[in-house]
């Protein structure tokens, strides 16, 4: 039983940051119909930005809640800026081109980010200071630390903030409208290019926050870390119905749980077989995601 609870807690933690990455896939797909293959690498940039922040702050370990929060926020903002720059340089010029051009550009960006960081880090792993081990809320058979709780609270806060932004602000409403009909959005006076950049900023910001969380949680980061995590988060986005934000959040947490339970009860070797098996299953049986198509078709 305690085993089960431990896997559940771990799964929720992993799921929280997978959901953050998945939201970026979903939002960006919504406004430019692009599966941003570089999104996992943007997440990786976030992990390094957070690492840089912690190093600059001189954090060496122990429970350091303010440092954790600072690293997540700074890492997220820095990643948001990087993601916006990438979109401006590589994607916006191709908006009028066939969609395949965008996809190829995204693959190019992905490789450039990976190789760039590989060179800058001499292809070595970097280790985050261990900040999550101290300060246990529960110890003994089930271990939950304050740091772990902080990660979950932060991601829930980010997701709640995103939800409020998208549903309650004019800019967020315009973003949803842009996802439905680009020309109609332009006719309302919406500067589509700028709104696309705002979307990339927010999507990258969320991925950056997740990158820092990953570093805090798993400690080791490297230039190639975004590939597999990106694919898992993409699976979550498809599972939740790409473009459907609440569905994506739920599916992100679900994939986190699948990962944790499969590693615990089966073997971590099987984790990705199970997750990507799920992806293929969903694509074959319910291509609009588990929650179905939420968008009402034009009458």
């Amino acid at each position: 039983m305690s085993e089960f609870v431990q896997y559940l807690v771990n799964g929720l933690t992993i799921g929280a940051f997978l959901a953050l990455i998945a939201l970026g896939y979903s939002m960006i797909y919504g406004v430019v119909r692009l599966i941003n293959f570089a999104h996992g690498d943007v997440f990786m940039i976030g992990a390094f930005a957070g690492f840089g922040t912690l190093t600059t702050l001189g954090v060496t370990g122990g429970m350091a809640l303010p440092a954790i929060v600072a690293a997540v926020l700074v890492g997220a903002l820095a990643t948001g800026v990087v993601g916006t720059g990438i979109a401006k340089a590589a994607y916006v010029p191709l908006l009028a081109s066939p969609r395949l051009a965008l996809l190829i550009a995204a693959i190019g960006v992905s490789l450039a980010l990976q190789e760039g960081v590989k060179v800058l880090t001499d292809a070595r792993f970097k280790s985050y200071p261990n900040t999550l081990d101290g300060g246990q809320i529960f110890s003994g058979s089930v271990r939950v630390t304050w740091g772990q709780l902080a990660l979950v609270v932060l991601s829930v806060a980010l997701m709640a903030g995103l939800w409020l932004f998208v549903t309650r602000t004019v800019t967020g409403t315009a973003m949803r409208a842009l996802a439905m009909d680009r020309d109609a959005a332009r006719l309302q006076g919406i500067n589509v290019e700028r709104l696309i950049l705002v979307t990339f900023f927010i999507g990258s910001l969320l991925a950056g926050a997740a990158g820092v969380m990953y570093g805090l949680y798993y400690v080791q980061i490297s230039f190639g870390m975004g590939f597999l995590i990106g694919l898992r988060a993409f699976t979550a986005a498809v599972l939740g119905g790409i473009g459907n934000l609440p569905g994506t959040m739920v599916a992100g947490v679900a994939i986190g749980l699948v990962q944790s339970f499969s590693a615990g009860y089966v073997s971590s070797r099987w984790t990705d077989v199970i997750i990507f098996g799920l992806l293929i299953g969903v694509l074959a049986l319910r291509p609009t995601g588990l929650f179905g198509e939420r968008v009402v078709e034009r009458a």
Partner: peptide, 25 residues
């Protein structure tokens, strides 16, 4: 102002939100 062919309202936004975007500027 341009009311396009086929109306092109934003289907998954409600009436109030559609009008809100009309006033986006």
């Amino acid at each position: 102002g341009h009311v396009p062919e086929g109306r092109r309202v934003f289907p998954a936004l409600n009436v109030a939100e559609n009008l809100l975007l009309g006033g986006y500027l």
